[in-house]
Structure formats: structure tokens, C-alpha cells
């Protein structure tokens, strides 16, 4: 395992049950996608946390720049009418 330093980092997303979206749970090392799934199974689903796993190479993720947070996010702060909080969501809708 002399080249374990070359192992990629993968971001792991788990769907905890049907109807819910995959949720980011953390990251791990793996030499390739298949082993990343197996590692994710061992590291993140030992306590029945999931029914489906996605893995994505970390370097394939493009993140927004924290320095640009103000122009990106603050304009939404004073527009409360965009939140659906003025409606009652019927229970039958379940997870939105």
C-alpha cells in the first residue's frame, strides 16, 4: 500500500430512506469508485443509516467562494415572502 497517499478523497451521500434525498454525511479515502462505495458502507452505514449510497470524487465538486457570500446570499435575507411559511402544509404531503 505504498501509494495510499494517492488515494482519492470521496464525498459520501446517503439516502436514509425512500422519499428522502441523499444527504452529505462525510468523506473518505478510496482507490476507486467501487471501493469508495464499499468503504462508505463500512464507515457510514454500520448503524442502519442508509438504503442507498452515492460517492463523488471530492475534486469534482465546485464550491462557492466564501468571499462572495454577501452578493450571493444576503439579498435573500429581507425577502421573507419567498418562504412558504404563510401556508399550512397538509400532513399527507410528507417530506417536501
Amino acid at each position: 500500500m505504498s501509494n495510499k497517499d494517492n488515494w482519492k478523497i470521496w464525498e459520501v451521500f446517503i439516502r436514509s430512506r425512500n422519499g428522502l434525498s441523499h444527504k452529505h454525511v462525510g468523506s473518505l479515502h478510496a482507490p476507486d469508485a467501487e471501493m469508495a462505495i464499499k468503504n462508505a458502507r463500512d464507515v457510514y452505514t454500520r448503524r442502519s443509516e442508509g438504503i442507498n449510497i452515492w460517492v463523488v470524487p471530492s475534486d469534482e465538486i465546485t464550491a462557492s467562494n466564501p468571499d462572495e457570500s454577501e452578493p450571493l446570499f444576503t439579498p435573500a435575507d429581507d425577502k421573507v415572502y419567498r418562504h412558504p411559511t404563510f401556508y399550512d402544509i397538509p400532513d399527507e404531503i410528507g417530506h417536501m
Binding site: 500500500m1 488515494w7 479515502h29 464499499k38 468503504n39 463500512d42 464507515v43 454500520r46
Partner: peptide, 12 residues
Amino acid sequence: GPILEQDIALSN
């Protein structure tokens, strides 16, 4: 284990 993930896999 050679790396954390394998350590956990073998312990499992």
C-alpha cells in the same frame, strides 16, 4: 489497518 477505512472494514 493500512488506512482508516480498511481498519473499520476489517473490524466490521
